[in-house]
Design a protein around this nucleic acid. Structure first.
Length: 127
DNA sequence: CTTCTCACA
DNA sequence: TGTGAGGA
């Protein structure tokens, strides 16, 4: 189970997750308050999301479109600890799209002179 | 510039 | 949920 390690590795900033999921920061923070997701926190108290968080957010989003309220979503998600039998085609997001955003984040971090926390973890995805 | 918390004309 | 204030 070395894959779960990468899936739960924190490496996405709020901005990236917003683009990746199409949700607003407000919503993402709100869902966190309701224990739908549990992103890590960086030094500056900034949220750092893992691939699992993003995937979960995507599920939440689709559930929301189907008219399910937070209480309902909480139930669905809490009862899905085990990666049940899902169609292989339900890929949350393409690698290409993922790289696109990761890259833009690196550029931003670069302009700030700081070493993004992403850089170090990035190699895990580009193995 | 980005993200954070809090609060609500 | 949006939005703005005030700070890091």
């Amino acid at each position: 189970m070395a894959d779960s390690v990468r899936r739960s590795m924190p490496l996405f900033s709020m901005g990236i997750v917003q683009k990746l999921t199409g949700l607003t920061a407000r919503q993402i923070r709100y869902y966190e308050e309701n224990d739908l997701i549990h992103p890590e926190r960086s030094e500056g108290n900034r949220r750092v999301f893992s691939f699992n968080d993003v995937d979960r957010l995507l599920d939440i989003k689709s559930l929301l479109d189907e008219g399910v309220n937070l209480a309902g979503i909480r139930r669905v998600l809490s009862e899905k600890p085990l990666e049940a039998n899902r169609p292989v085609e339900k890929k949350a997001i393409s690698d290409a799209e993922l790289m696109k955003y990761l890259k833009s984040e690196l550029v931003q971090a670069g302009k700030f002179g700081k070493t993004s926390l992403i850089q170090g973890e990035l190699s895990r995805f580009f193995r």
